[in-house]
Amino acid sequence: MSLLTLVVVIIAGTMFGIGAICAVWRVIRGPSILDRALAADVLLAISMCALGAEMAVNRHTDTLVVLLILAMFAVLGSIAIARFMAKEDDS
């Protein structure tokens, strides 16, 4: 691993980490369940980006299928929560 790649890995890892911690904070704090659903979605998206970055750095494609499955089905959770909310309290 070259020095350049090392620097990129450290900076990008820090950014991914801060983003993920922010998302977790919002999951914990979120005033409404919609905030939590949204923050969980963001956490998932950050994980997808991080998985992809790891593949690019280490030059393999082992977890590309994981990204595919997540892109296909990650939407279901948020939609379920949104539907549930819309029915729950319509006041």
Binding site: V8, M15, I18, G19, A23, V42
Partner: peptide, 13 residues
């Protein structure tokens, strides 16, 4: 990769 990481960070923040 840095662009992706920055956009992830921005989403979290």
């Amino acid at each position: 990769i840095l662009l992706g990481a920055f956009l992830s960070l921005a989403a979290g923040v």
